[in-house]
Design a protein around this nucleic acid. Structure first.
Lengths: 241, 241
DNA sequence: GACCAAACTTGATAGTGATCAATTTTTAAC
DNA sequence: GTTAAAAATTGATCACTATCAAGTTTGGTC
């Protein structure tokens, strides 16, 4: 199915060495390696690109590659037994996905969809067999991946705990506070996703997001500068909600 | 603080080679190694034991070891910002913990508490520096840990999705169905934890667990044989709740 | 085997957020 | 710049589950 994509999309760039290099040197799990070690990985990688709305993979599909994002944005989501979707994370350039299926099951548990409208989403593929060979040859890559996995696990468990113990209003407040941390320096930041997606991520509805953000504004904790821009006025207060 | 435990608890068994051996050969991440490689790891391990209610570690504490459970049960839980606790998992002999802090932050994000009343909980410690050396020396261990991490990540994300999309009743039904899968063959199984802990794991209250299980029984999907034993009568029906 | 503490159950009430419906605003495509 | 589609907002209602309170059962300890 990878071959299919390569042929289907006119934007595929298998022979664009520049893109490969960017992929490998972009990613924290590889960019600590020596030049020539990165080159070695680079030549095994393949590039594919996707237009907005196209699926990179679906749950249940066989997996045999690690996907590294080069360009654009990818939305990773899961479907529950009852068919409702939850946004798991959004990948930006330098992020990777597909690991679960690589080390575990051979089928994906989630869905990956290109979501950037203006730019095509470019992805580098590294085949499972190539990756496993590199892991055994350069054990330090494993340590990097273990590091990445453990932060994701930590984050995922933290989010689970939030779901289990905090009400929606608090989860929203904590999310906003976290956005500020990343876009540090200023008190203003831009929401990293639509409110619809945010609702899906936080396990609530767009209506509730609207209402609660409005409430937080009325209580003087935040201020909506525009649809996507938010200013935090009282961080301490926000964290006590 | 490890030394503290070693000295504090009369049950520590640093010199009990049998326990070490059991630790190392019990754990999936090590038991694929050669005899002598396991022995090599074994000699670096330390044994400690805990009585019911004692803490193995707390969030915020420095971490420098991997903990392998030899005996008893350990309850891993997290506290949310607002101080409410959520049960993350229960460790049985052969399970390990402490990895997050080993590869990531240097402090624990969760709490680990010995919970077995009748038997002391025995744990083997492997120091971070020793472990890292083994990982570089025997890269296959990393692959095993990557495997373990990715299933945990999968499970954690799956649970998050359940929280985000399913109501409490459904989460309970899914949990019961999963219990059955593990205790396969029979239609009856024993709850792996108290209902109070189950409530904490599923992000609800003991009252709601009681009521919902009662409802599921009234609807004919399950039958409570005793406080802890449950018989699944209509699995398909249960999964549609 | 009796006792105490913890776990569990059951009932009544209240709060939170989902759902449905109707606009309004924003975004991207032509 | 216009338009169509998607996203966001706002209001009214309702379902679900938390909370509080009181009583019962269970399990480990002496």
């Amino acid at each position: 199915m990878i071959e299919k994509n390569v042929h289907q999309h006119p934007h595929s760039c298998q022979h664009n060495i520049g893109a490969h290099k960017a992929c490998v040197s972009l990613v924290p799990i590889f960019n600590h390696l020596e030049e020539d070690q990165m080159d070695e990985i680079m030549v095994t990688a393949q590039s594919v690109s996707y237009k907005k709305g196209e699926m990179i993979y679906r749950a249940g599909e066989e997996s045999d590659s690690l996907y590294i994002v080069n360009n654009g944005k990818i939305r990773i989501y899961r479907l529950s037994e009852s068919g409702k979707e939850q946004l798991v994370r959004i990948l930006n350039p330098g992020d990777f996905t597909g690991e679960l299926a690589l080390f575990n099951e051979t089928t994906h548990e989630s869905y990956a969809e290109a979501i950037e409208a203006m730019v095509d989403t470019g992805v580098c593929l590294i085949k499972r067999s190539d990756l496993q060979a590199f892991l055994l040859k350069y054990p330090s890559i494993s340590l990097k991946i273990l590091n990445e996995f453990s932060s994701r696990l930590d984050q995922s468990e933290k989010l689970t705990t939030q779901f289990a113990t905090e009400k929606v209003e608090t989860r929203i407040a904590l999310f906003l506070a976290e956005c500020l941390e990343q876009n540090d320096s200023s008190h203003t930041f831009e929401l990293p996703m639509t409110k619809k997606n945010l609702a899906s991520y936080l396990g609530t509805t767009p209506e509730t997001i609207s209402r609660k953000i409005h409430e937080l504004e009325e209580q003087g904790y935040i201020k909506q500068k525009s649809h996507k821009k938010i200013e935090i006025i009282d961080l301490d207060g926000l964290l006590l909600v």
